[in-house]
């Protein structure tokens, strides 16, 4: 009798375990479904978009004005969907952001990793991380209300004509936002440089800064570069700051004092407010989304690969 109940219980157990196993696999596979969902929905709508607008016009067109006219006989009634001005605008703002975040982030990491006492490092590092935790809509508001007007007034004093939605305002605020990203990856890369190398340099009578500049930073450089690439991916995909502080109309320029628009701004512009789902305008947003996904994915993959390889090099 005892044996039989034991076997029964075991059998019941086994069925339960099977069910749990299936549940676990299903949940893990959810991540795959999300990816498939993203790629499929973007691709599907993009293909429909390319039926209306030739792919070459999209990729190489230098004119972006998606406003389809009210009457079909108006000039430019079909709208123009050339992505080049959006790409240059996105690149311009990202470059401005990185030229602020890279030096500040790397030097902050140098200070925190090599100079700060453990106690002050324990305070300063989390404080720096707060910058990454502030919602982007807050940065956007700050850029639009405080930084942009201040820059414009400053420009007026200096005799410069700075647009009120200048790339400089949006880019610099975005730069501050990604400082913690650069600094924490740089910090990891710097602390991964073996103590033996630092000691070799210090043992030769080098000062701390000579050791950092000539030994530590060159050894940590790949990791830092990877981190900056990850930060670039973040800057390219950032939406709210540019929606609130950058321009709304396409402008093919590399002048940081002018207003430019970005890929993400245009996605928001095309999809907020009234829209019919099948118009070229809404479909264009998905084509922009696919472009954005591709670019960020490439940046990320290269960046993470470099960071990981650099980490292994000293393990």
């Amino acid at each position: 009798m005892v044996d039989i109940t034991g076997a029964l219980a075991q059998k019941k157990n086994r069925i339960n375990e099977q069910a749990i196993n299936i549940l676990l696999v299903a949940c893990a596979a959810a991540a795959i479904f999300v990816t498939i969902g993203i790629v499929a929905s973007l691709l599907f709508e993009t293909i429909r978009f390319f039926k209306e607008v030739p792919i070459l016009d999209f990729l190489f067109g230098t004119n972006w004005s998606p406003q389809t006219a009210m009457r079909s006989d108006q000039v430019g009634s079909s709208g123009a969907f050339g992505i080049i001005p959006l790409i240059t605008g996105t690149a311009l703002i990202s470059v401005i952001a990185l030229s602020i975040a890279a030096p500040l982030g790397v030097y902050s990491a140098v200070y925190l990793a090599e100079y700060a006492k453990p106690a002050s490092r324990a305070i300063l590092k989390p404080m720096l991380e707060i910058l990454a935790g502030i919602p982007t809509v807050v940065y956007g508001f700050f850029a639009a209300i405080v930084v942009a007007p201040a820059l414009r007034d400053f420009g007026a004093l200096a005799g410069l004509d700075i647009a009120s939605a200048s790339a400089l305002a949006a880019g610099s605020v975005m730069g501050v936002m990604i400082i913690p990203l650069v600094s924490s990856i740089s910090d990891d890369a710097i602390t991964a440089v073996p103590q033996a190398l630092k000691e070799a340099s210090i043992g030769l009578g080098a000062t701390r800064s000579e050791t950092i500049r000539r030994v530590v930073l060159p050894a940590a450089l790949p990791g830092i570069a990877g981190g900056i690439l990850l930060a670039a991916s973040r800057a390219v995909g950032e939406t709210m700051i540019v929606v609130m502080a950058a321009g709304l109309t396409a402008n093919l320029t590399v002048n940081p004092l002018e207003a430019v628009t970005t890929v993400t701004v245009q996605i928001v512009m095309l999809l907020t407010g009234d829209q019919e789902f099948d118009s070229a305008k809404t479909l264009a947003a998905f084509a922009l989304g696919l472009t954005l996904l591709a670019v960020t994915l490439i940046f990320n993959s290269i960046g993470s690969w470099i960071v990981a390889r650099n980490r292994e090099a000293y393990d």
Binding site: V34, S41, L42, G237, T239, G289, T296, L297
Partner: peptide, 18 residues
């Protein structure tokens, strides 16, 4: 890991389409 770095606006597009 890749999903963790997809820009948030892309998830919005997914929600809209799906």
């Amino acid at each position: 890991n890749n999903l963790a770095s997809v820009p948030s606006i892309i998830f919005g597009l997914l929600g809209l389409a799906v």
